[in-house]
Design a protein around this nucleic acid. Structure first.
Lengths: 221, 221
DNA sequence: TCCCTATTTATCCATATGTATCAATTTTGA
DNA sequence: TCAAAATTGATACATATGGATAAATAGGGA
């Protein structure tokens, strides 16, 4: 058994699978391609994971846990925050997670479009709980006057998810057509500011970069 | 040669290919699957289209022309519209097109994530011109005071595209988890209203459904 | 040292796929 | 009507794939 510090075969496979599945989807990926990227013999996949499908599920589980940890990292402070501050906190961490791990949303998007039988597993275990909580959170924010209530919660929720994730899904297009690396830290923070400015109707100052000068004055509230 | 009215083999193949490529992507689709759906022998694909790739390109060209026609259908009246009215007009038609033909954005999304060599063809011929025009239009609308200028144009553009299209990409999830058919006409109009309300800061009345009652009063402007 | 288990490697196999070929059939034009 | 062209259908083939099998190797405790 390894010391647990270096990447063992199983971890290398998982890491490579996340990369490949996140780039070309389930159908486009081959277990040999994943094994090659991991630098292991493709027969080993069968040993560590029951099947290609099983490896794919492991990727989803791994990434979902990462996301959960990222979004909840300041949970202890939530109680002392205003609803508005809580939304700024969660939205920021969610966008940063997607910038660092765009594969999760890409994999989910592939399967949601595909409507495969994998989608049912994904939906029951991850998407539905996530969407349910997020939609409830949107509705609550509307009640609290933090989000605009002129838009139906369902539409606002999907616009919200799309707004936070799509620029990272479209990263290669943004890079090729506009020369912008959306994964660069300053661009990530800029996007957080953009989404929050839109959502909350006023520019939000983040810690690392002060976009307020280019965003105009903060309105009275 | 056919009269052009009934669906000949070539048209049936194109229609089936749009459906299949739009659902499972390029890698997930097989030419036999497409031929089966079209009800033709799979050998015929080779006669009408040089290759699977060629058929895929034909789908993009076909859908892009449809989109162009849909978005520009009221072009003659643009000159007599205010910038704000023009945006309402174009956004409405763009969203209705995506509701009726979600395959285009799905196919584009597949390839943009995949970053395949097909993406380069797609980008040069369709995405880049489209994004260029759209981004310029966003910047202009900001100058004209129609769009908020507190958000960088690039971010606003990608948020905008995502907001208009994603609910249709996620249609199966919305249906399964919330029982809403986003392709139903009233839902499409509701989404147009939601996006425009967000974009323009005020509810927009569409012809067919009056959402204004649930959206609150129109602000002075 | 030796044995038992865990892990890796090297092949093998049935299937699905994209494409090519060519015969069969239908359509067209004089 | 009939021959040429267009179109469709049936089949073949090389390759890639997911999965299976078993031999080879490594590691760890007695």
């Amino acid at each position: 058994m390894s010391t647990g510090l270096e990447l063992d075969t199983r971890s290398k496979l998982l890491k490579a699978a996340v990369t490949v599945f996140g780039k070309v989807g389930y159908a486009g990926a081959s277990v040999r391609q994943i094994a090659d990227l991991a630098g292991v013999n493709h027969g080993s996949i069968r040993y560590h994971y029951a099947s290609k499908r099983d490896l794919w599920c492991a990727c989803i589980t791994y990434l979902s846990e990462l996301m959960d940890a990222a979004v909840h990292q300041d949970e202890a402070q939530w109680a002392s925050m205003t609803p508005r501050e809580r939304i700024i906190n969660v939205t920021g961490h969610y966008i940063r997670f997607n910038a660092k791990n765009p594969e999760l949303h890409r994999m989910v998007t592939f399967e949601t479009i595909h409507e495969s039988e994998r989608f049912d597993w994904l939906n029951e275990n991850y998407i539905r709980p996530f969407s349910g909580r997020a939609l409830a959170s949107v509705a609550l924010a509307q009640e609290q006057g933090v989000y605009p209530d002129s838009i139906p919660a369902l539409n606002l929720h999907y616009i919200n998810i799309a707004a936070t994730t799509s620029i990272f899904m479209m990263a290669s297009e943004v890079q090729k057509n506009f020369g912008v690396d959306v994964f660069a830290e300053i661009e990530v923070e800029r996007h957080i500011n953009a989404v929050l400015t839109w959502l909350l109707g006023a520019p939000q100052v983040q810690e690392k970069y002060d976009f307020i000068s280019m965003l105009g004055p903060k309105p009275s509230e």
